[in-house]
Amino acid sequence: MKKQAVIFDMDGVIIDSEPLWQRAQDAALSVYGVHVTPKQCEQHTMGKRVDAIAQTWCELYELDIDPKVLEVSILKHLHQLIAEQGKPMRGVYELLEYLNELKLKIGLATSSNQSVIEAVFNKLDLWDYFDITCSAEHEEHGKPHPDVYLTAARKLDVPTDQCIVIEDSYNGVLAAKNAQMTTFVVCEQCQAEKFMIGDAHFYHLDEVVAYCEGQEEQLFL
């Protein structure tokens, strides 16, 4: 089946924001005497919506606060960090330009809130590349449920089996596979056993460009 659309995750795929998310969580939690490490964030919260992140830490550390308060604080710190330090992942613009040349539809399906999408797209000047953006904030369930990817396919008006997803987290890969979409895993741990459910594996986005160029007739034309 020829592919008509590529749907990107955002954090860790388009922008190098996972360290920023980790720092934002630690800063928000420090008010309550809690400090979390990058390893803990990767284990417990990577790929989740911010409401689920806040709920996770409140439960793990038995914090006697409204998780919504923690959620707001995490987002405040994150917005500031993105504005000050946000950087694109290697190969982002090259891949987007390549997909535009093929006249493919391009979408975003992220666990991040709409406000975070806007912060990232403004910082990296991405608005002109994407046909649609979707936040799991507006879904009943976040990743690993497929909801946000199904919404993206519907908005793009492309069948799910004609979509390629680019993901970097296990929850995200599960969501894409649950949506019956071809899934490219792009991250430093792409060869880890948990990611073997993906359809192709890359360390960086520029490798995706090279792969697609080599498979262009089979994938797109």
Rank of each mutant, 00 (worst) to 15 (best):
P144Q: 05
V185H: 00
H138W: 01
I74N: 04
L29G: 02
L150I: 14
I74T: 02
Q85K: 14
E137D: 05
V120P: 00
A176T: 04
E188T: 14
V69M: 07
V148E: 07
C134Y: 02
K105I: 00
L96V: 06
A152R: 08
K155H: 11
A27H: 06
S135R: 07
M10Y: 06
G86N: 04
H201K: 13
I132V: 14
A5D: 14
V173L: 13
C163R: 10
I65C: 06
L99Q: 13
K68Y: 14
T133I: 10
T133D: 09
I65P: 11
A119D: 12
W21P: 00
L102K: 15
I117Q: 09
E84T: 10
Y61W: 08
A210V: 10
V34L: 06
P159F: 14
M1A: 12
Y203H: 15
K39I: 13
V116Q: 08
M46R: 15
I74M: 08
A176G: 15
F220D: 02
Y98S: 02
M196F: 11
V165F: 02
V31N: 04
C41T: 13
I117S: 00
I117Y: 04
A24D: 03
L124H: 05
I166L: 12
E71V: 01
L126D: 06
T37S: 12
F8K: 14
E18S: 00
D161G: 00
S111L: 04
Y61V: 00
Y129T: 04
E188V: 11
C163G: 09
C58G: 02
T110E: 07
K39N: 13
I74F: 08
E216H: 15
A54L: 08
I164V: 12
K105N: 03
K177C: 03
F202G: 10
D147F: 03
R49C: 03
H145P: 05
I106W: 12
D125T: 10
V158L: 09
V36E: 03
R154W: 03
M89K: 15
I53G: 02
C134K: 03
E217S: 12
E101H: 15
Y32Q: 07
L219K: 05
E217D: 13
A54R: 10
D157R: 14
I7D: 11
F202V: 12
K105Y: 09
L99C: 09
A175L: 01
T45L: 02
L108T: 11
D66R: 11
V173Q: 09
